[in-house]
Structures are given as structure tokens and as C-alpha cells.
Write a protein that binds this DNA or RNA. Structure first.
Lengths: 245, 245
DNA sequence: ATAAGTCGATTCATATGATAATTGTGATTG
DNA sequence: CAATCACAATTATCATATGAATCGACTTAT
């Protein structure tokens, strides 16, 4: 890894980390998402193995995992091919992380928040119906962290994530709960942008409204309050990038 | 089902289909989701291979795919273990299909529609903003199929799916588009229930309202109309099962 | 000349046996 | 009793061989 100026990976062994398969998964996954194979044909498994300095078993297992995530498809004689992005599983945290790491386009950030604006208000409404005491406690804890973060006593991003994740969890709906990982992955990876966008102190007051609505078992109020929070973020994003597509 | 009274699978070879790996993936995935390993410890890769009459390579690749979908986790010495359901990727169509096939609980159906009631209205609103001519054409086509189905000239379920999928696609948001597969998989697999629930002729009129709102570029109207459609379904489900959990 | 069929090369799919790496468990020792 | 060490179990990795599927070129028959 010193003077090597090769474009091809070609490192004989491992900066793949302790686990070769998972390291290779990460490398290839990132390469696919970065678009490195959009023009070129995807290598054969033998070439992949040689380029990364691992055995074909490891290669095959990594390829199989990428297949399971919708990024690849393998057939005899035809070879292994990259699937169109429409079949990638965006709700897989690996795929999402690769996409966010590659360039973090404002488009992707907007699309992600368009998802949040649908899911989180409804999740808050559900939470208002079914949340238990422990759920409320977690939501309170998240809110308190946000308040602490206002005075520099906690990390604002992590506090925000804790709050939103607590609400999704309180919905008691597996689909919403699943989105915990998606939301926290996306928020954490896109720190650069979110920092510019967030940081307004009105935030905490608006979050408190959500909490209160859930505690008061008022689904409609919870939905509206949460929608305002994410709508604000979305508005800021769209301001920065007026014309999409 | 016939005379075989073995609990263990133990078939020496393949009713796994042409592709052993994918057949094994399906078998093990279904077994996990069915809860066959909740009490018992998960077999070692050697045992798995022997039980299914395949090589360890095939076993390992199937296990790796299940790992990628969040169902399994493998570590040396500790063995391969089934992950808690909270880490399963429900937005993976395989996982979802296995879950819907296993027993199709009303709970799962309700939770799925709780997701739809969040996503699809917002998707319709987005579509009203960004849909192109081709998108509108697809939505119209879906609506026409529903009208045809009213007179027995088309399959009502497939027509319904086509309509909803067309709208998700028209949103131009990859996250929403991704849910196409989820929605169609779930609707198609849960025919038994949806047949009982749907089939009211008011449906087509309500769907037409969504279409008109999108064509008129009216996001709010589209959101409200779509919300009513899915809210109706949700109401019927909750009627059947008053107390959840 | 066109159509169908044959053959071969390429690539993934599968099998097998051996070795390495990791880590829980229990024995050992201070 | 605690810390350490040795062992064993299990996955991780490697190397090699064989099978199966498919595309393309070539051949052959009509």
C-alpha cells in the first residue's frame, strides 16, 4: 500500500480486515455502488479472486451476499452482472451506507427525507396508540439528551437519533422498527449535510410536542408535530437544490 | 406429509430444485422463519450439509446469503445462530415471502398495511408533483384493469397491484420504488385474506380519485384519497381483530 | 443460401479434503 | 480465588477437481 499506483486493486492480500469475506463484500459493494462497473464488464470470479488475493471460496461467498442484497446476479457462461439500481435493497444498511459514503448527493438526502416524512409521522401516531411505559421512558431520555446537547453536554446528532429511534421502536410495528437502522445509518453517515441543515434550537421544542402528544395518547397531534419536524428538514434541503432530477 | 415421520429434513439429495444453493436458501430461510430453531440450537455447517445432502460449499453460500438478509450470524467456535426477528430485513422479498407463507397472521397483515398507510399516500403526493406522461399512462392502465376486473374481464388482485405499483413508481423516489416489490409480494401472497377484505365496488371510484388528483397535480388531494383507500383496508382488518398484541 | 444441429470454450455450480484462525471451556497453577 | 494456559470445536480459508449450462462458431442437410 506504499508506492502502488495501480488502478486495479491487485493488492495480493488483505487490507480487507480480519475477515476476508466481509472485507471483500465491503470492497466490492462499495465499488459497485460507486459505479466502477457501469461501463466495464464485471470480472469473473476467478479474476476477482486473483485481484484481491483471496481464494475463490471467499469470492463466491462475498458475491453471494451481494446477490442477496440485490446488487449482483450470477449465471453460468453469462457471468456475474451488476443489477440495475432499482433492484438494490436500499433498506439494507450496508447498501445504504455504501450509497451515502460514495458521494452523498443532495438528491439522495432529499429522497431519504421524503421517506422519513411518510414513515415517522405515522410511526409517532402509532406510538401514541400503543407505546408502553418503557417506550415513553426511552423517548423522554432521547428528549433530555437533546436538551443537554443544547448546552453542549451531549452530542446533538446522537441525541436526535436516539429520540427518533425511540419513537419508531415505540410503534411496535416490525416494519417501522426495521427502519431504526436505516434512519440511524443515514443520519450518522450524512453528518456533513445534517450539520449545516440542523442546529436550530426551535428543534427541541418541536420534538417536545411530539413527546407530549404521544404521552397524551393523541395520535393526530403526534403525527402533525412529527410531520412538521421532518417537513422543516425537507424544506431546507429543497431550498438548497430547487430543481430536482 | 407422506410416510416420512422424520423431524429432521434428512433427504439425501435434491428436491432443492435445479440450483442447490438457492433451494437450500429457501429451505433454511423458511425453516428459520417458521421458528424451527427457536428452541433447538442451529446445526453446524457440517450437519446442515449432511442433512440436506449437499456439500459444505453450497451450505456455506446459503448461510452467507441468510446472513446478508439478517437471519443468521456465524462465528467460529460459537457456531451459526439465528438472529432475533428484529434484525431480519423485512424489506427483503424473500424474508417477507417466508413470513407471509408461514402462517399469514392477521397481525402481520395489519402491520404491513400500517406501513402502506404511511408510504402510499405520501407516494401519491410525490407522484402528483413529479409524475411524467408515461407514469400517468401506467396509472391509467392500472385503473382500467380494475374497471375491467369489475366485469370479470381481468384479475382484480393483479389489477389492484398494477395500480398501486404504478403510483409508487411515479414517485421517482428510489425508496418508494423499492417498496414496489414489497407491496406486490405481500398482496400476492396474502390473497386469502385480501379476498375477504376487498371486493367492494366503491374501490374503483376511490382509486379513480387518486388518479385524477395526480393528473391534476394536486398532491394534497392525492394524499387524502390514497389514505382513504388504505385506511379502509386497515379498518376492516382491525375490525376482525379488535385487540392486538 | 438458409436452417438446424453439433461441438467447443467459457463461466458459474458443486464437491472434497486439508489447513488456519478464532474462541469458549475447563484444567492448571500461583 | 484468580489468572493463565492448553485443548477442542467450529467457522474461515485454501487448493483442486469435476459437473452443468450457455453462447457462439462451425458444420451439415435441405
Amino acid at each position: 500500500m506504499t508506492g502502488s499506483s495501480h488502478l486495479i486493486i491487485d493488492e495480493p492480500a488483505a487490507q480487507l480486515g480480519r475477515n476476508l469475506t466481509y472485507g471483500l463484500l465491503d470492497n466490492i459493494g462499495r465499488a459497485i455502488v460507486t459505479g466502477q462497473f457501469e461501463k466495464a464488464v464485471f470480472p469473473t470470479e476467478a479474476e476477482l479472486a486473483k485481484q484481491h488475493g483471496v481464494s475463490r471460496s471467499v469470492t463466491r461467498e462475498a458475491v453471494k451476499m451481494l446477490t442477496a442484497k440485490g446488487l449482483l446476479s450470477a449465471r453460468p457462461r453469462q457471468g456475474t452482472t451488476v443489477q440495475p439500481t432499482s433492484s438494490w435493497n436500499l433498506f439494507d444498511t450496508d447498501v445504504l451506507r455504501w450509497m451515502l459514503e460514495r458521494k452523498l448527493s443532495i438528491d439522495l438526502l432529499r429522497q431519504f427525507n421524503e421517506l422519513r416524512v411518510a414513515v415517522e409521522p405515522e410511526g409517532a401516531a402509532l406510538a401514541a396508540t400503543v407505546a408502553g411505559e418503557d417506550d415513553l421512558a426511552r423517548i423522554d431520555a432521547g428528549l433530555e439528551r437533546m436538551q443537554a446537547a443544547e448546552h453542549g453536554l451531549d452530542d446533538p446528532l446522537e441525541a436526535d437519533i436516539a429520540f427518533h429511534v425511540a419513537i419508531l421502536r415505540a410503534s411496535k410495528n416490525p416494519f417501522y422498527i426495521q427502519l431504526r437502522d436505516v434512519v440511524s445509518t443515514a443520519l450518522r453517515t450524512s453528518i456533513r449535510f445534517t450539520n449545516r441543515i440542523k442546529g436550530r434550537s426551535a428543534d427541541v421544542a418541536e420534538h417536545a410536542k411530539v413527546r407530549d402528544a404521544i404521552a397524551a395518547r393523541d395520535p393526530d397531534a403526534a403525527r402533525i408535530a412529527m410531520r412538521r419536524i421532518i417537513g422543516d428538514v425537507l424544506g431546507l434541503i429543497e431550498d438548497r437544490q430547487p430543481a430536482g432530477e
